[in-house]
Amino acid sequence: MPKNLKDHTYLPSQGLDDEFVEMCQALASQALADPDSRPRLVMGSKTIDLPPQVAEILGQVVAAMCDGLAVTVAPQTRELSTQQAADLLGISRPTLVRLLEEGEIPFMKARRHRRVMLADILEFQKRQRHQADQALADIVADAQAYGDYDHPNR
């Protein structure tokens, strides 16, 4: 990774004027809703066509900041150490190593060091979220079937 790329958190301005917020929200929703339009970045006399993925990212950043949320940009290499992968998942390194050894997440071994691809970590994270969502839906369905939602004082 180039040395000049560093993590940085951007805070929304305290006094975003209403017109700017409305414009940002309209642009963000249009960028996310219209995949056929080719977004462009204009800086002075230069115009750059943006790939749809970049427009989606910018739309999400603008939407988050308009909602008063801070946004962190954290460049990542495509190949992670076990510690970097564990930090990304919010788990301990030994837990990650156990998941690797159990075959839950693919990895490569360079001598005695394990390396994990960022795409594999993100895919695992997506699977975990899906499983958690499914488990919650099952709990809610069971509770509804037993009538637990029928009693407001419980």
Rank of each mutant, 00 (worst) to 15 (best):
Q76K: 15
C66V: 12
Q131F: 02
R129G: 11
M108E: 15
V71S: 04
L122M: 12
I121W: 02
D36M: 04
D142Q: 15
D18C: 05
P52M: 03
E101P: 07
L5G: 08
T47H: 07
D36L: 07
G147N: 06
A135E: 13
A86T: 00
L5V: 13
L27W: 13
E79N: 07
D67P: 04
R98C: 00
P52T: 09
L16F: 10
S45N: 12
L100E: 05
P12T: 13
L88S: 07
D36C: 01
L5R: 15
Q144R: 14
I139E: 11
L96W: 00
P152T: 02
K126W: 00
D34H: 10
R154S: 13
R78M: 12
L99S: 01
A86V: 03
S13I: 15
H130R: 14
M1S: 15
P152A: 03
D36F: 03
C66F: 00
L32R: 10
S37D: 12
P152C: 00
L41R: 07
K3G: 09
L99W: 01
Y146F: 12
A31M: 12
K6R: 15
A119L: 12
V73H: 06
A135M: 06
L27E: 11
M108C: 04
V42G: 04
A110Y: 12
P75Y: 05
M43Q: 14
D7I: 13
A86D: 01
T9P: 08
V73N: 05
Q131N: 09
L16R: 13
T95N: 10
D36V: 07
T47K: 14
K3W: 09
A70E: 15
V42R: 13
Q76N: 08
V54H: 06
I57M: 11
H8I: 15
V73A: 13
Q131G: 03
A55I: 03
A86F: 00
V71D: 02
R93G: 00
L11P: 06
D34L: 07
I105F: 06
A110C: 11
A143M: 14
L118I: 05
Y10P: 08
P12N: 10
I121G: 02
R115C: 03
Y146M: 12
Q84G: 09
P51E: 14
R127T: 10
L122G: 01
S92I: 04
Q30N: 15
L89Q: 06
L96V: 03
V140M: 06
A28E: 02
D138W: 00
A110P: 08
C24G: 11
P12G: 10
S37E: 12
Q84I: 03
L27A: 09
Q144E: 11
P75F: 03
M1I: 12
S37N: 10
Q53T: 12
K46N: 12
E19V: 07
R40L: 10
E101M: 10
E56L: 00
A145M: 07
D148C: 13
N4H: 14
F124P: 06
A135S: 08
D138V: 05
I139V: 14
Q125W: 01
L11M: 13
R114N: 05
V61N: 03
R38K: 14
I91K: 04
P51W: 05
M23Y: 02
A55C: 02
Y146S: 11
G103P: 07
A85S: 08
Q14C: 08
V73G: 10
G68A: 02
L122D: 08
H130L: 10
D120K: 10
R38P: 06
P35F: 00
E101S: 11
V97K: 04
Q134N: 05
V54F: 04
P106N: 11
P2T: 11
A28V: 03
